[in-house]
Design a protein around this nucleic acid. Structure first.
Lengths: 188, 188
DNA sequence: AGAATTTTTTAGCAAATGTTAAAAAATTAC
DNA sequence: GTAATTTTTTAACATTTGCTAAAAAATTCT
């Protein structure tokens, strides 16, 4: 629990009062490898934080799984807002490894935002940081070749490459798995 | 001025007090077509709102201009935060048509955030909305063909196609101008 | 209106990526 | 440890998109 609060505190220093208010809202849960965490992300009522492990969000496009987000330890799942519809498509949340999540209901989150101006600020800043990550992803897929995207990925997320199957990474990078395999063999 | 405040108020209903605090911080300015608004976006000290007209943000990649954002009337330029580095590359902000902007300094914005919890909330919600737009853009460039992206674009932004040169739109869509031209002639 | 400039389209060829299928390698289950 | 399953690589060919250059069309300037 405190790991999550420390994570938040590192983004925006929080008062003890705010920290104490967050604490009782948190719930810790363990998941096994390849387990479904949330069957339909859009209608989930919880915000999750990955304390340990690796998870992913994906959806189906023409029978195929498209992974469009990886959650390493110390990541927040999706955005900091109630029922934020990432897409119209149905997203599922699954573990890739044994994972420990810390969760808080949107209901409680809204209450905390309302009660503590400093937490509202924290939410704003996390959203801004997420924007930065999204923008980076746009940059990498918009004007770079498959090889460049792959190099960028292993530079930004060196551990994921050893922890997730290539198929998931290929879809994350917007390329065919065969293309990813080809690109990898081009030395790098 | 009030148009901007109305825009904000529509996102999150604001108290009169907050509205009155915003008002004196605003500055209105007119620009001609093809005029530079900000030479280097990352070091700009102002947040802009497009009251009227059309603008774009772009950067140079291998001598070529890459437009990566269009600002229609009633858009906010970039994110609601001080010195938010969209990219390491130098972004310029230019008008495409005669344009009226309403601006507020980040300095004043920070003060307003600090003073009014409700404005901090507004900032958070705008950031979340921007995330949605970014996510949509990722969806469209990641798994769709040039033709599909073009169709998606004219559906989402039907007016821009008539107001901005195709070269800008092509770079925005992450494709060659020649490809865009080809795609357009495939009936649609 | 006519000349100059900019934008858009067209064409031909090159390069990158997708697709299908099968083999090889690695991992998991018994 | 061996069989079964999953993941990764390889190959051959198809499709899409990129690139260069030139023609056509539209716009701007005087």
């Amino acid at each position: 629990m405190t790991l999550f609060i420390e994570y938040l505190n590192a983004i925006v220093p929080l008062s003890d009062e705010a920290k104490n208010a967050i604490y009782p809202c948190l719930k810790k849960q363990h998941y096994k490898k390849n387990e479904t965490i949330v069957r339909e992300l859009a209608s989930s009522q919880y915000l999750h934080f990955v304390e340990k492990g690796l998870i992913r969000a994906f959806y189906l496009k023409e029978e195929k799984e498209i992974t469009d987000w990886f959650g390493l330890e110390k990541s927040i799942v999706g955005p900091i807002v109630r029922n934020f519809p990432i897409k119209k498509t149905i997203h599922r949340l699954e573990t890739i490894e044994d994972t420990t999540l810390i969760s808080i209901s949107f209901n409680n989150l809204e209450k905390l935002y309302f009660q503590y101006h400093e937490l509202e600020r924290l939410g704003r800043i996390i959203a801004i940081q997420s924007m930065l990550l999204l923008q980076q992803k746009i940059d990498s897929i918009q004007f770079y070749s498959a090889k460049e995207r792959y190099i960028d990925f292993i530079t930004s997320y060196p551990t994921i490459i050893q922890r997730a199957p290539l198929g998931m990474i290929a879809s994350y990078l917007g390329m065919n798995q065969v293309t990813l395999s080809r690109v990898r063999k081009m030395n790098v």
